[in-house]
Design a protein around this nucleic acid. Structure first.
Lengths: 347, 347
DNA sequence: CTGAAAGCGCTTACAG
DNA sequence: CTGAAAGCGCTTACAG
């Protein structure tokens, strides 16, 4: 390995001079600069960034701890984080908690993982990261999970701690718009298949649905609201119930694509045509939603944007260049496909 | 920030002693150990691993450069890498090339990305990683892409360079077994929808298909082999052609799930029932394959295992503990669902 | 415009 | 069993 010292000797200058030309700092005469650069190339010098980091007390490294990289939302978020990291010349130290394998969807058992989080953060800190992004697998309150005197941003989850930031998308607005879309198409009897109602997203989406109805003076019918558990099967079961309600809804908003898939299966079994007899909207825009029959109209999540925004906020907090927002909500967009139809043509 | 020096002073010992107790090395009397440990806890000392890395010339960090984290295979592979990294006390420095966004599936244009790879590797080297894992988005020959005097393993792609390793799955065996499965169920007229034939996976899968036929003395009918481009639409188009062949096949092996999805759509349009009239097997076991109607029988890829194995090989090469295999091929497994039926019951 | 020297926070032969 | 000291590869006031 060739060091700055070797360059200095070969170029007949001091190590300080070499360092200056590498970092393009100080006043170095064009002649010595050229000489040094030449030697650097000849000896194929590769700087040692860990030595530099130790000296300047800054690693230009961000710790990213992701709850589970195999959950559908994580890769896109990380992709966004990477994009912004590249733009800012930052590297990513990645820790994957793999919580899904340990506790599945039972987030009540998340306590089991808290020590893992502590350990992960400690490891990252010992490696002197400049800040941390914590990527959740769904939005929930994680206040107190991480205590650190460096900036940390919670991506797809939340924390209210000082010097900590949260980036999510706007569930309520998304559900509001999806419901409005249905109403705009003439639907008045719009059912909702909810996920587990103790979750922040389910709550927000319900509110959006409700407010859309109210804002159009449509009656809120509790019979039209069914609570599933985010899984395919519950969508199926709840759809069966909705289909047998006396005043059957003409549209269903499912709180995720999987449950919408279950709705499709129920309809197939019951001879209900989608979208001719029933319009269906999903949520998440997962890959599978494109391959459903018919292709599912659904709400696309700004995952990449969440990642980018998270990194931008973190960079702002680290460089103290601006005061970042503490609680960002990004906008979703509806992707129109083939599972929705105007009400006028129904029946 | 509290340093070893501070601990030493507070505990009235030398920094050497503190270092010894932290690293559980040398002979330290139980008394001084306790004393030091106590002070460490009191002052909440956090070791600085970048200083340590500089000194011991070893970072316990692996560079992972992934061509595109949003491609379906990447998260699982990275998950496996993480799992093994955890077991070995290693950290991951992640670089995401995001090639998909730049060149899509036109891997002929991959040359555009070579400089990115060089830059990524250089960055990783400057951060003194102990080795590198390069995660491709499909198996192809990447010999010469990375020149490095540290061990590097190619995950889901290949390199024949000295001191470099490759980990993939066994395409040929997987296709062989899938075809055998169909044959065992009584099918004799088995069609193949291939991906672009210039790719290593397509070649291997074709061979497996071919060898299975031959080993059962079944005629190889070139009319039964169609070449698609891995996309949904080509599966649809090729299936249309296969369905109109005079001696229509009773089963189709599609080289990926997306094309199998296209087959389903063609069947739906043509009134061909799956699996009653036609059995279909896919490849990849992507999430969507579970949500197809009917659920697709497909070949599951040992992605997590590829990640783990890659890391294990890298660790072996770094520690020189054993001589790792240079070209590993892991076994796939068939996941039986609802798109295949015995031939006897056909028609 | 350039160099000598201190120091970032650790580890580790070596001496005692 | 413990400590003094050198050194890992850099950067950066400071002096000249």
């Amino acid at each position: 390995m060739v060091r700055i010292k070797d360059i200095a000797k070969a170029a007949n200058v001091s190590t300080a001079t070499v360092s200056y030309v590498i970092n393009e700092r100080g006043n170095i005469s064009s002649d010595t600069r050229k000489k040094v650069l030449k030697v650097i190339k000849e000896l194929n010098y590769q700087p040692n960034n860990v030595a530099k980091s130790l000296k300047i007390n800054k690693t230009n490294t961000i710790g990213v701890v992701v709850e589970d990289i195999t959950v559908f939302s994580s890769p896109e978020i990380i992709n966004g984080i990477n994009e912004s990291a590249d733009e800012n010349g930052l590297s990513i130290l990645l820790t994957n908690l793999r919580v899904h394998r340990r506790i599945g969807n039972n987030f009540g058992e998340f306590d089991k993982c808290r020590t893992d989080v502590k350990a992960a953060v400690e490891e990252l800190v010992s490696r002197q990261v400049d800040g941390i992004i914590y990527v959740g697998v769904h939005n929930r309150d994680l206040t107190g999970l991480i205590e650190l005197d460096k900036p940390v941003v919670f991506s797809y989850c939340s924390s209210r701690t000082e010097n900590q930031f949260s980036v999510n998308y706007d569930d309520e607005l998304a559900a509001f718009e999806a419901t409005n879309y249905l109403i705009g198409l003439g639907h008045q009897k719009i059912a909702l298949i909810s996920g587990l109602i103790d979750s922040i997203p389910a709550h927000g989406r319900f509110l959006g649905y409700y407010k859309a109805l109210v804002s159009h003076n449509l009656e809120f019918n509790p019979e039209y609201v069914k609570t599933g558990d985010w899984e395919y099967l519950s969508g199926y079961t709840m759809a069966k119930e909705l289909l047998s309600v006396k005043n059957r809804p003409t549209a269903i908003l499912a709180m995720n694509d999987l449950m919408a898939g279950g709705v499709f299966e129920a309809c197939r079994e019951s001879g209900v045509r989608v979208p001719e007899d029933l319009s269906v909207i999903g949520f998440d825009n997962r890959e599978c939603s494109f391959y459903f029959t018919p292709r599912l109209t659904t709400v696309n999540l700004p995952l990449n944007e969440i990642g980018m925004k998270s990194m931008e906020i973190l960079v702002g907090a680290i460089r103290k260049s601006d005061i970042p927002e503490t609680d960002v909500k990004l906008k979703c967009n509806l992707v129109e496909r083939e599972s929705v139809m105007e009400y006028s043509t129904v029946r």
